[in-house]
Design a protein around this nucleic acid. Structure first.
Lengths: 382, 382
DNA sequence: TTTAGTGACTAATGCGCATTAGGATCATCG
DNA sequence: CGATGATCCTAATGCGCATTAGTCACTAAA
C-alpha cells in the first residue's frame, strides 16, 4: 500500500528520496519490492484498522484504549483485544502532535569525544534512568556534545523540534547557564548532582551530600593521624568539585591544619599521576591523597609507588568513586561508594513526577559510604 | 494560549494530568501561571507564525524552507529570515506524521544493569555515532535492556510506535534473532561487529577482521617462541568471539600446536582472574595469554603476578582492547588497538546511507593493530 | 404524553507539516 | 488577440491520534 504510493511519488519527483527510508530495509534499490515476490515489510496498524476490525468508530477506539468514558465495557474489552491482536501501539508522533508530549526524555553529555574514557559512572547512571523510564514507555534521547554551549544549543533544538518532554542535566557548574535556559524554555528538568538552587524553583535536583562525605573522609584520615592531605579534585567549574573543595578547606580550618589543599584537574589518569608526582616530590609530601575519581586514584597510586612511596605505609589513598578498577590494582583502593544505578533511578523518578505535573523538589541521595580497603592506614609518625 | 486550554481541560476532567507536563517546568502546582506575574514559557513557533510574519501562505513557507520550487527567490529568502528570527525548527512529530520518518535512530544495549562495568568501548562507539548523526540532526534513542528477547521487544515497540527510522545493532550472535526480526519489520539496520551475512541482504554490516587480527597475534607470539597459548575469550554466543575462537583453532592446527585453546567467559574481571588462575595452576601452564578485553587482561595479569608468574618473563599477556587501563598497571599491557570512535562513525554513516535509500553493504574497518608494550616478550625456553 | 436525562456511539476538528490541486498574473507565440 | 505556458501563490487534504460536538435510542420523571 505504502509502497505503491512511494512509487508514484518516485515517478513524479525523482529527487525526492527521503521517503525511501521507509522501505530501504529490505527493498532492492530498484523499487521492485511490490512486484517482486519478496514479502513487503509489515505495515503499522493504526486505530483506523482497529476500528474496522472491531466494527466501531475511531473515536470509540480512542475512548476504549485510553480508559475514557463513552463506551460500554463490552466494546472496550473487544477493542482492547483487537488492538492486542494487531500489535497496535500508539504512534508517538501522532500523540505528540495532538498535545500529549513526545514521550521522550533527553540526556546530554557534554565532553569532548576523546575524553570519554574508562568511566563506569555514566553508563550505570543511564542504566538506572532507563529502568524507570522503560516502565513508562518513555524513550531516552541521548546526545554527546563538546561543551556547555553545545548542550544549550541541543536543548533549544529539542525544545523547538518538540522532541523531548523533559531533560536530565548532569555535571552542573557554578554559574551554569543551563538552569536558566531550561526555565525560560519551560522544559521540565532534573539536575543531577547539583545542590538545591533557589533561583530556579522549577527545576528538581537530585544530589549527594558531598560536603558530608568529605567531612567524614577528613574525619577518618584525621583519626588515623593524617595532617597533610591533598585532594586531587576534578574539573574546577563543577558544582560538586566546588562543594568538596570548600568543605575540605572548612574542615582544615576547623582543625587548624595548614597543609591541606585541593588541586583541580581534568579527571584524566595523566593529570592524576602528574599532580601526584608534583605534590609527593615537594618538601613536605602529604600523607594522604583523596582523588575525585577512580581513574585518577589508580594512576596516582601507581605514580606514588614509582616514586618509592609505599601505599599505605607512606601515603594513604582514597578514591571518590568505587568501581571494579579499585579492586584491580594492588593494594586495593579504599573508596567512597555510591549506587550510581540507584542515583539514575531516583533522578528519572523525579523527572517523571515533574512530567506528571508534580512540583519541583530537591532530593538528597544517601551519603556515599567509605569502603576501607588496603590503601588507607595510619599516618607514619614523622 | 495553550495554558488557558489546559485550564479548561483541567476543569472538565480533573484526572487528566498528562498534558500538564507542558508547563510543569516553571508552573506552580496551582495552575496559576497565566494569572501570576511569572513569565509563561516561550511558545514554539510554527510555520503558521512564519507565514503570518512573512505575509504568505503556509504552503509557501513549506516550499521555501524545504527548497521546493514554487516560490520566488525573494520570498524564499524572506521566509528563511523570518524562520531564523523566530528560531523555528520543524516539529519532528509533525514531520514524522506526514511521512518523513522520525529523524531518530535507535541503539539498544542488551546487558544486565550490574554488568555495566568499566567499559570505554560503548561510550566511545556511541560518541562516534553521535558525531555523524548530529550533523544531520538525527536523534539517538538509547535503551538498556536485560537480554536479546528484551531487545527484540524494544525493536517491535519502536517500530509500532513509529519512533525510529533505523537501528544500530551491537553484539551480534551466532544464530541471532535480531536480523530476521528487523528484516521482517522493514527497519533499516546496521549490524556492528557482525560478519557479512547473506541471509539478510537488507542489513548493512560494519565489522573488524577478527580472524586476521587473531592470526597476526598468534603469528607474533609464535615468533617469540610461544607454543602454549590460552585465549580467555568473551561471551560464547557472540559472533566475534566465535570468529576469534575458530581462527585460533585453525592457526594452532596449521602449526601443529596442541596446547592452544580458548576459554569463554562473561568478560568480567572476576572471571578473567579465575580462568587465569585455573590455567596457570595446571600441569603445563601456558606461556601466553590473550584476553578478549582490557578488564580481564588487567585482572588476569594481576592474578598471574599473585601466583608468582612474572609478566612477561613467565607469561606474556595481550589485551584485545586498548584503553587507559592498559597503561594504568605495571607492566603496561600490550594491546590490540582499534579506533572505537571511528568505528561508531562508520556505522552511523552506513545507517544514514541506508536511510537515504542506499543499498545495504558490508564495510570492513581496519584490522586492529597490536601495540607492543611491556607485557609481551620471548617465551621462556623450558 | 411530553420533557429531560443518560448511556453508547459517530462525525468532525485540530495538532504542524508536506503535498497536491487549483487559481491568478504574467510573458510568449502563432 | 486569444491560446499556451510559466511563474508564484493559496486552498485543501491527509498523516494518526485526542477531543469536542453532536446523534440516536431508550428510560425516568413531570
Amino acid at each position: 500500500m505504502r509502497i505503491r504510493i512511494i512509487e508514484l511519488n518516485r515517478i513524479r519527483d525523482p529527487e525526492l528520496n527521503r521517503i525511501s527510508a521507509y522501505c530501504s530495509g529490505n527493498a532492492s534499490p530498484e523499487w521492485g519490492i511490490a512486484m517482486s515476490g519478496k514479502r513487503s515489510p509489515a505495515r503499522r496498524p493504526t486505530m483506523k484498522d482497529i476500528a474496522r476490525h472491531a466494527g466501531v468508530s475511531q473515536s470509540a477506539v480512542s475512548f476504549a484504549l485510553n480508559g475514557r468514558p463513552g463506551v460500554s465495557d463490552d466494546t472496550r474489552e473487544r477493542v482492547r483485544q483487537v488492538a492486542e491482536e494487531l500489535g497496535w501501539r500508539p504512534s508517538t508522533a501522532a500523540r505528540a502532535l495532538s498535545g500529549e508530549g513526545a514521550a521522550t526524555v533527553g540526556f546530554v553529555l557534554a565532553r569532548p569525544a576523546d575524553t570519554l574514557g574508562v568511566d563506569s559512572f555514566f553508563l550505570q547512571l543511564v542504566s538506572g534512568i532507563q529502568e524507570v523510564l522503560a516502565e513508562r514507555h518513555l524513550g531516552l534521547l541521548f546526545q554527546v556534545v563538546e561543551d556547555i554551549a553545545g548542550e544549550c544549543a541541543v536543548y533549544r533544538r529539542w525544545w523547538a523540534e518538540h522532541r523531548v518532554d523533559g531533560v536530565l542535566v548532569v555535571d552542573p557548574r557554578t554559574d551554569d547557564p543551563r538552569p536558566g535556559l531550561l526555565d525560560e524554555l519551560g522544559l521540565p528538568a532534573v539536575v543531577i548532582g547539583g545542590a538545591p538552587d533557589d533561583r530556579h524553583p522549577g527545576l528538581s535536583t537530585v544530589w549527594a551530600d558531598d560536603a558530608g562525605a568529605m567531612a567524614s573522609v577528613v574525619d577518618g584520615l584525621y583519626a588515623l593521624g593524617h595532617r597533610r592531605i591533598v585532594h586531587i579534585a576534578g574539573l574546577p567549574g563543577l558544582a560538586h568539585t566546588e562543594r568538596r573543595v570548600r568543605t575540605l578547606r572548612a574542615e582544615a580550618g576547623r582543625r587548624g591544619l595548614s597543609e591541606v589543599k585541593s588541586v583541580t584537574t581534568d579527571y584524566s589518569d595523566a593529570e592524576g599521576a602528574a599532580v601526584t608526582r608534583r605534590v609527593l616530590e615537594g618538601p613536605t609530601p602529604p600523607t594522604a591523597l583523596i582523588y575525585d575519581n577512580d581513574v585518577m586514584a589508580v594512576a596516582g597510586a601507581a605514580a606514588a609507588s614509582e616514586l618509592g612511596f609505599s601505599v599505605p605505609a607512606d601515603v594513604s589513598v582514597v578514591s571518590w568513586e568505587d568501581s571494579a578498577l579499585c579492586r584491580m590494582v594492588k593494594p586495593w583502593l579504599s573508596a567512597l561508594s555510591r549506587d550510581s544505578v540507584e542515583f539514575g533511578r531516583t533522578a528519572a523518578r523525579e523527572l517523571t513526577a515533574l512530567l506528571d505535573g508534580g512540583s519541583a523538589r530537591a532530593v538528597r541521595v544517601p551519603v556515599p559510604r567509605l569502603i576501607p580497603r588496603q590503601s588507607t592506614g595510619a599516618a607514619r609518625t614523622p
